[in-house]
Amino acid sequence: MAFHINGRRLASEIEQHLAAVIQRHQNRAGRPPGLAVLRIGDDPASGVYVSNKEKACERIGISRHGAHISKDITLEEMLHVIHSMNEDPLIDAILLQLPLPPSLDPGILLEAISPEKDADGLHTLNLGRLLKGEPGPRSCTPSGIMVLLANNKIPLEGQHAVVIGRSTLVGKPMALMLQSANATVTMAHSHTIDLSSITRRADILVVAAGSPQLIGARHVKPNAVVIDVGIHRVPIDEITENGSKSYLCGDVNSNELEEIASALTPVPGGVGPMTVAMLLTNTVMNWGNRCTLDNPLEDLVSF
C-alpha cells in the first residue's frame, strides 16, 4: 500500500513556523508582511484559490492588500495598478492570479511586477536566478514539492526524476530544482511519443499535465514516488449520498497506483496546501529582505 504524503499537515506546520517568525520580527520591522493578490474577472476556481490564500494570510499575520478587478480592465489600467503596488511600502509580495481574461497578456503583467516583490518566482529575473542557483523567490508549487520530498526524507541524489508538463509555472522550474538536488531529470509533455516508456523509468514522477487521471498503473514502475500536481472537478452521472454532482481528482489515477507506488500525494491534501504555504514563505522572505532582517527562514528554504 502506497504511503500518502500529507501536504496539509506539513503546510500547517510551516504556517505555525511563519507565524512565530512574524511575531518575533514584527517590532523590529515596524509592520507585518504584506501580500497583494490580484484577481481579475470572475473565474470560479480563481475565486476559491484567492479565498484560501487570504484565509492563510489571516491565520499567520500577513496583511492583505489584494484587489478583485473587473475583467473589462485595460492593459494600461492594469499596469498602473501593478506599478502603484510596486511603490507601496506596505506590500512585500504581489501575486497575479492566473488565468487572466483573454484581453490581457500575462507575460506583460508578470514582467511589470518588481522582481523584489515577485510572489511566485515568475519574473524573468527570478527565473534566471533559479537557473543560475542564485537566491530569489521560487515558484510556489515546485518549491512546495521540494519541501514535501525533503520533509519525508525521499532521496533525490542520483535518482531518475520524470516531470510531465513543461509550463513556466510548474514543469520547467520543477526540473531545475530537481537537477539542483542532483537528480537526473527527464521532461515529458503533450508531444512526447510513447509516454509510458519514459515514465516507467522514473524513481520520482511529478505529474503536472493538466489532464484528469492521465497517469495509471501502466505508466509507473514498482516503488516509484508519484507527485500529483493536478486538481480537477469531474462531473458524475448520479448525485452522491452527500448531494455532490462531481468529484475531485488529480492527473493521476491514484486507485490504480495504491499497490504499485511507494508514496503518493493525495488530491486534495497533497501539493495544493504546500503551494499556499510557499506563497506565504515567499512573502515573509521578501519582507525580511526589504526590512533588512536577518534571514528568518534559512532553515526552511534551501533549494
Rank of each mutant, 00 (worst) to 15 (best):
Q26S: 14
A112V: 06
L18T: 05
C140V: 13
N255E: 15
L98R: 09
L110Q: 15
I108P: 00
L10Y: 01
S114F: 11
I260N: 00
F303V: 14
L122G: 01
I94T: 08
K172H: 14
V252A: 00
G250Y: 10
T292C: 14
G107S: 14
V220F: 08
D105M: 09
L195A: 08
A224V: 13
R28C: 07
I94G: 09
H123G: 05
E259G: 02
P99A: 04
T141F: 11
D294R: 13
R8D: 12
D42T: 15
A56V: 10
P235A: 04
G210C: 09
C57E: 06
G272Y: 05
V267H: 02
T281E: 04
S12V: 03
E258S: 11
K53H: 04
S196D: 12
S167Y: 11
L90W: 05
D203A: 02
P173C: 11
Q26P: 00
L109G: 04
V220K: 02
L75N: 12
S139A: 15
D118K: 00
T240S: 15
P235W: 09
I94E: 08
I62P: 02
G30C: 03
P101I: 10
G128S: 02
M278R: 03
V170E: 03
T186G: 00
P106K: 12
R290D: 12
L176N: 00
D120F: 10
T275Y: 06
I91V: 15
K117S: 00
I113E: 07
D194M: 09
A202T: 06
P173I: 13
I62G: 07
G34I: 11
L169A: 14
P273C: 03
F303Q: 07
A202R: 07
P44M: 05
D203N: 10
G128Q: 05
N152K: 11
E298Y: 04
E298I: 13
H189F: 11
G250E: 01
I164C: 02
E258Q: 15
E76R: 14
V267G: 01
V50G: 08
N152Y: 15
I22P: 01
V229D: 06
S51Y: 05
I60N: 00
R28T: 14
I113R: 01
M1P: 01
M177R: 03
G288W: 03
E116H: 13
W287V: 03
A29C: 03
P44A: 05
T265S: 00
A119I: 02
R9H: 12
T168C: 05
I236D: 07
L297P: 01
S143N: 14
Q179G: 14
E258L: 15
R218L: 12
